[in-house]
Design a protein around this nucleic acid. Structure first.
Lengths: 242, 242
DNA sequence: CGGGAGGTTGAAATCACTCAATTAGAGTGG
DNA sequence: CCACTCTAATTGAGTGATTTCAACCTCCCG
């Protein structure tokens, strides 16, 4: 059943480590329910105690936290192949919320199935742990950007990260990606107001670094964009580059 | 040899999950070399490819990243019991640097010994993984603070986090802790200038929330401090509270 | 041809930064 | 025990980045 469905997960895991045929087969055999989800719907909310884990098969999602005054901080953008709520396997209560940013497809896998997979395949366990550690590296890089980089560099860096991550799973060609992000989303990720994001995007366009329509981002000058964002992809620890 | 030394690690692991006597014994049996380290010395640097892992036995350390222009972003404060460079087990090249903030004691454990421990004790593996996930939750909370909270709340939140984490390992009594942080360190962690940190600390003192000497922090009004920082300790997922 | 979400613009206000000088403290050597 | 020194804390003034508020525009979709 999961057969073709779980492919994005396999592809993602293989973007930073290799799997044996046996392990690939075990992943494919893992049971799960396909769940479609509309744009801008919560997938899991802070405080929930999930009994299953959600794999993003298609679409786009984000992790976020809401502050008392109503401000929002997005703490991660999830791409196809990501396990959205892996922490729920080891930490019963969710401390963050998840929201779809585009019409998406999820694969819902029961905790038991996931834990059985880990039990039987230690290398898969290590790959998932490795993924957790790479996410932590991405978090650190976001902290650097939010804390110490001015808006221009910060936005450039985010775009570089997303393009490289999309490329690693085959969803970007030629530094060009579908990005269903509003300027408010970008601002909430980088700690900026949407007005300031708007002006910063104009600067990036003016500098000839990017072209951007409603839902498509293209890096016209990839090296220039990397420079502007002080971007060095080594922290993403990709096995291969696109 | 590691016998008495590894205790802080055991205590830390038990602060968010329980260990059997067998598992505790296995941890105690793990070989390692004790290494003292001066204040303000790098323990590991970005780009290194360590063959061993460092446990902080005593003292205080931080993870940081240096930007081209010389700015620094601290991305984590490590307390006794923390494994400082666990990622090096699964990710060969370090993407961050580590620095001691006080005279400290390390326990250096070879990668093989660590991996053997994981191989033989799956529950220890899961506890360490759980620790990694809790760190990720702390990272998210830092992003929220850096990105969306004004300085006053941001500093208050950081102090709350450190006091609770110190309490969990028995190093804080009565909301009072030894904190060998300069105002520049605090600023580099929160994305603020040291001048602004100075003024913010004066406000916190003026509001009757804290008392602070060079290396000692005391929350005079714990609830007030939590309010000011919008602090809710659930994201730290502590097993027990001190 | 509305309606609504998201993008764009301008002006005023604010938070935080930089620069530069001064003070306080802790440790050291004589 | 006192000068000396270095690091860290403090202060003031001027600047700059980013926010807020509020209005207006534009595009997409039904």
């Amino acid at each position: 059943m999961g057969s073709a469905l779980i492919d994005p997960l396999t592809r993602k895991l293989e973007s930073f480590g290799s799997l044996s045929t046996v392990e690939q087969a075990a992943l494919r055999r893992t049971e799960g329910t396909r769940v479609p989800i509309e744009r801008h719907h919560d997938i899991v909310s802070a405080g929930d105690q999930p009994r299953s884990v959600n794999v993003l098969l298609e679409g786009f999602a984000c992790t976020y936290t809401l502050l008392p005054e109503g401000k929002r901080q997005i703490t991660f953008f999830h791409l196809p192949g990501d396990v959205l709520d892996l922490p729920s396997l080891f930490i019963p209560v969710m401390d963050y919320s998840l929201c779809s940013l585009a019409h998406s497809q999820l694969l819902r896998i029961p905790h038991e199935a996931m834990l059985a997979l880990f039990h039987e395949h230690p290398r898969i366990t290590h790959l998932f742990w490795r993924e957790t550690l790479i996410y932590a590296a991405i978090f650190r890089e976001w902290m650097v950007g939010i804390g110490r980089r001015p808006a221009f560099a910060s936005v450039a860096h985010l775009f570089c990260e997303l393009i490289v991550r999309m490329q690693a799973i085959g969803l970007a060609v030629d530094h060009q990606v579908d990005l269903p992000l509003t300027q408010a989303d970008i601002g909430d990720a980088l700690g900026l107001s949407s007005v300031h994001v708007n002006r910063t995007l104009q600067e990036l366009r003016g500098a000839g670094l990017i072209k951007m329509t409603r839902s498509r981002l293209r890096a016209i000058d990839w090296h220039g964009l990397c420079d502007a964002g002080e971007f060095d992809d080594s922290y993403l620890h990709q096995q291969q580059m696109g």
